[in-house]
């Protein structure tokens, strides 16, 4: 794992800096994401829950958390 002080990712549409590469589980924890029904998408690819520990987020990545909302 490499570290950098200038790693920027896009997290749900907002650019944020992260201190180092990290796995999805750690990213969710740092952003106070609570357990529940959602899907994590990294660079347009769905990340299954079973891969939260192994999928690494690095600079330039686009991370989206898709959640249920109301709809007609």
């Amino acid at each position: 794992m490499t570290s950098s002080k200038n790693m920027t990712i896009n997290f749900n549409g907002t650019a944020i800096d992260i201190a180092t590469e990290m796995n999805v589980a750690k990213l969710l924890q740092l952003n106070d994401v609570v357990d529940g029904r959602f899907v994590v998408v990294v660079n347009d690819e769905i990340v299954p829950k079973s891969e939260y520990d192994s999928a690494v987020i690095t600079t330039g990545d686009e991370v989206e958390i898709m959640s249920p909302i109301t709809g007609g």
Binding site: F11, N12, G13, N31, D32, V33, V34, G36, F38, V39, E64, I65, M66, S67, P68, I69, T70, G71, G72
Partner: peptide, 13 residues
Amino acid sequence: ITLSLRRQTPTKS
């Protein structure tokens, strides 16, 4: 029932 999905971060707040 119909529903949808959007980019949304579920947090306690």
